[in-house]
């Protein structure tokens, strides 16, 4: 069993993904979670870890939720940075 990645590592990878997709594709939290599990592997990255990483990103304000028919993860508007 490999060592788990840390919450901060997952949060950084999530932030990178959300930044890459900004303005191109709406990402739901589950899309981001699935991408992280694929990136790090199921043995290193769990759904619970992703949940904690999303919470960290939201509480810090690095990412925010948007609502466009459904709820998505995105970057805060430039004025709020």
């Amino acid at each position: 069993m490999s060592d788990q990645v840390t919450v901060d590592e997952v949060a950084d990878a999530m932030f990178e993904l959300v930044s890459e997709c900004y303005g191109k594709k709406n990402l739901k939290p589950m899309d981001v979670t699935k991408a992280m599990i694929q990136k790090f592997g199921e043995d290193k990255c769990s759904k619970q870890l992703c949940k904690e990483a999303i919470r960290k990103l939201m509480d810090s304000g690095r990412t925010i939720y948007s609502y466009v028919g459904g709820s998505y993860m995105t970057l805060p508007p430039p004025a709020a940075k």
């Binding site: 509480d59 925010i64 939720y65 948007s66 609502y67 709820s71 995105t74 508007p77």
Partner: peptide, 17 residues
């Protein structure tokens, strides 16, 4: 028009733009 980016810090619900 409804939706958008409004909310309070850390939360994704509770505010409808």
């Amino acid at each position: 028009k409804h939706g958008g980016l409004v909310g309070v810090k850390g939360y994704g619900g509770g505010v409808i733009g």
